[in-house]
Design a protein around this nucleic acid. Structure first.
Lengths: 250, 250
DNA sequence: CGCCGGTTTGATTAAAGTCAAACGATGTGG
DNA sequence: CCACATCGTTTGACTTTAATCAAACCGGCG
């Protein structure tokens, strides 16, 4: 029905000058890796109009599990953790997000988890009601959201396997390999220097372990020559292949 | 082009061209609870044309993790388990499916998990390529798939919390409460008779436990007066509220 | 300098896993 | 029809892994 709105706008580079300096989206650094990559210039402009770029300090809670999902967020810099709590305070971190990741996939219009910044973070914030109207005009955006949901689902199932069946060593190895991949050095780089912005406590709550077990396993890996610890948040993977095998249970 | 491809598929079955009587979808029992509920009569007929109703015996493997996702499935009766394996054979069941559930959300066109029937099962099977053409004509279908993916994601995160932070007792309680809800007696029914079609081994692999721990916890619950065990696959929840509290960690 | 939070290391405990045997349904063949 | 083999389940004894409790350590900061 409203698909007439879709087929236009295949012209190449519209001069950005039109949008002018007031449009934060058109020169956004995470544009190419975020859901915005599914939009043409017009769509970007439409989204830009309903977007507020918001900075948060480290350790700021900005989404609460079960609350009405009035805002959607697109992380543009920094690291965010998503978590759920049990009644007595036990915490499970369900994911770490960084630039390009999206927050707001909701069920019954309620957030599935709480979100807290790990580092200082900037997000693009949209009111959900307004976002929906943009969504209607740009079906590619919904496709992209669907794709992101599928990727989240795949990641969730990786974590289910990890939590259900892997040992502490395998969990830590999986975590290091994942963080290494995420750091995304161009292929096969020799130097696997990984930065871990989150605390040991966060790592523990992500892997279903305790702080002490995380710490002990790190020193074990150091003694085994698998990693080198550089300060508190730096790790170099000395044997990435060995760690990858450990992660798979080999 | 897509139309011709779709027509080819009517070779093996009855003369479907004359809709109505021979159309298996229009009187499908799971129609109202499956993705088909998002389709009008025309859409249903289109889907019907590319559908094959396939029966599987119990314990039949019919989807393999990592394989190209050439078929999609809609469960219409029976119980299916989805699982992932570690290299050495450790198994994690990521979900149990029953009538109305969908199999085939894929990433990079590959299945995320393996699927095996628990009981005798019937599925509606679609070739993915053909399904895609129907999808193009019925956007409501894609919306419905998106909704299902979001629900799966919510369920996956429940399981992450369970596996990462709950005790054996809490896991079993959560499982019983979930199976009770699924059995869906009309609201607040006094009789919480739950049927467990899967083996203890399946339950263990779903909850990240061993067979022995599952068995011991069941007898513990029986001794605590929380449940009554009726034969091998029957359980009655004597204290559903108590179990629900246990499940939440209270 | 000495406090403070997060981290590491150490000693001990507890929860769940492993190994092993008994039990109980179900099905088969003598 | 019953003896017996089989498979999944339950129960028991013991072990192991990771959790808990506790102290020492370390780096940053007022």
């Amino acid at each position: 029905m409203s698909q007439t709105a879709v087929h236009q706008c295949t012209h190449a580079a519209l001069p950005l000058a039109l949008a002018g300096v007031s449009d934060p989206c058109s020169h956004c650094e995470s544009r190419s890796i975020s859901l915005c990559s599914s939009l043409d210039e017009q769509g970007l402009a439409a989204l830009s109009r309903i977007t507020a770029a918001v900075p948060y300090a480290a350790k700021t809670d900005f989404v609460s599990e079960g609350e009405p999902a009035t805002y959607l967020f697109n992380v543009t810099s920094g690291t965010v953790k998503l978590y759920r709590l049990l009644a007595d305070g036990r915490r499970q971190i369900v994911g770490f997000l960084s630039a390009g990741d999206f927050i707001g996939i909701a069920v019954n219009d309620r957030y599935l988890y709480s979100a807290e910044t790990v580092t200082p973070v900037t997000v693009c914030r949209f009111a959900k009601s307004k976002f929906k109207t943009v969504l209607e005009d740009y079906p590619a955006l919904e496709k992209r959201l669907f794709l992101m949901a599928k990727n989240e689902l795949a990641a969730a199932q990786d974590q289910i396997l990890l939590l259900g069946r892997k040992t502490a060593r395998e969990r830590i190895a999986s975590f290091l390999v994942m963080m290494d991949k995420r750091g995304a050095q161009p292929k096969g780089a020799a130097l696997h220097a990984v930065h871990l912005p989150m605390s040991r406590s966060d790592i523990a709550d992500y892997l279903g372990l305790t702080i002490e077990t995380v710490s002990r396993t790190f020193t074990q890996f150091r003694n085994d020559g698998l990693i080198r610890l550089e300060g508190i948040s730096g790790v170099t993977l000395l044997d990435p292949d060995g760690l990858a095998e450990l992660a798979e249970g080999l």
